[in-house]
Nucleic acid binder design. Structure first.
Lengths: 235, 235
DNA sequence: TAACAATTGACAAAAATTTGACAATTCAGT
DNA sequence: ACTGAATTGTCAAATTTTTGTCAATTGTTA
């Protein structure tokens, strides 16, 4: 009778948006059903992994048939919480804040931009994407009166924690952080960080790694020409 | 004599930029040495993991002392390939492209913005961050003559693959993709994707998960009041 | 209606990742 | 110079994640 709360691993969670994205595309192409094998070929995963992932949440498929695309899309949407509507504010109306404000994909997923805040008097009062930029002094009050669920932090890294501290005193549900610092937040606030420069450094690592490999490859070739081929090296 | 090329796992690679970031902060605070334990407390990892991660690349520490911050920073910079200089272009001068062009952190890490490309005649000719926006027709030629290493894709998802296809015919080393699609690229081109909306959906998942947990918590409490406490449930 | 191909869900095996433990070493204080 | 506390690098154990396999089920075709 005891309902076990199965803990879903973060690895699985991180793949859910990707499933959602691919299923959305299949719907657009009027595809009715999909097998884990075909999906795995499209997405570059194993079929086994897809079936295992989905089974964390329930048996959505049918033996001998596969998965109904629309049904599965709906299920994953629900798992992702996209049946909820979210109100969000952007804090920091610099280039990145403006870029996010102007991104159109969010509202159709149920995320509604309600306000933009900045500290710079020159920017306050401007209109971005139908929303006026407000003085950051008004932040807490606005969150309260407008029922804001999510705050997007786009301020410089020096000010990010101080903004987070202010948010921690409100009843905000989630923080989407773009400042290049790891924020400390209240335990019951959800935090999702986007570290763009970390991503760029990862790219740099991979480029460099490839350069090193190529260099080594050349040395190996030169050595191989006269003699017998070496036994294959694990990559 | 055979030099084994140790394969570094992607999990480790993804943590390197974070080490780099924290060590950079320590340098700014004039901290000379750091132990894996202190670093683990700062970063929210285990000390064991940090030591293990770093040992993939060499023994940078000293028993009984710890790690010299500057040395370790320098080593990790090198591992990340930051001793190289990279020339990059941005393709798509919309809000996001402009935000990236204006971000100051890149050039100090050795990434130099050389050109911005767009298809929109109204934008072509504009100057962003000292760089003129050029017609996308000139892309391939520019990559060749200016020795461009990295292309940043900031075009709408409908055009992203077509841009990637064009890049695949050049000798570009890496692609940093912000369009919400998984690009197909040549095997010898390095790809790093930033899926902002995936990240937002992950946030949505976590918020929703927390809501469900709270709801269940309340039910459990109500049930517990009269009787004996249930045995603890694994979280 | 029977036979066959396709496919899931479940389980077990395999692989990868993280954690724990400890000998060896270093530094600081006396 | 000696002692004790701190700390690394390494190995093995524990845990988590991914992959492979197969019975059971379904839809399709002859």
């Amino acid at each position: 009778m005891e309902k076990e709360v199965k803990k879903i691993s973060i690895a699985v969670i991180k793949r859910l948006p990707k499933y959602h994205r691919y299923l959305g595309e299949l719907i657009q192409k009027d595809v009715e059903k999909i097998s884990s094998r075909k999906l795995s070929e499209m997405m570059g995963l194993t079929a086994s992994q897809i079936r295992q992932d989905l089974n964390n949440f329930g048996g959505f498929g049918q033996q001998g048939y596969g998965y109904n695309v629309k049904d599965l899309y709906r299920e994953i949407s629900k798992i992702l919480g996209l049946h909820n509507k979210y109100n969000f504010v952007i804090i920091g109306a610099g280039n990145l804040g403006q870029a996010i404000a102007n991104y159109h994909g969010f509202s159709e997923k149920g995320f509604h931009l309600k306000g933009i805040f900045d500290i710079n008097p020159k920017i306050i009062g401007m209109k971005i994407h139908e929303v006026q930029v407000m003085d950051i002094d008004k932040l807490e009050e606005f969150i309260y009166t407008e029922n804001i669920d999510i705050a997007v932090i786009c301020v410089p890294k020096e000010n990010a924690q101080e903004v987070a501290d202010r948010l921690n005193k409100t009843n905000i549900k989630g923080i989407w952080n773009f400042a290049p610092v790891d924020l400390r937040v209240r335990k019951d606030t959800v935090l999702e960080q986007v570290h763009l420069s970390d991503s760029l450094l990862t790219l740099s690592y991979k480029i460099n790694e490839k350069l090193l490999q190529e260099r080594q490859e050349k040395i190996r070739q030169r050595r191989d020409i006269p003699g017998h081929p070496l036994k294959s090296i694990k990559t």
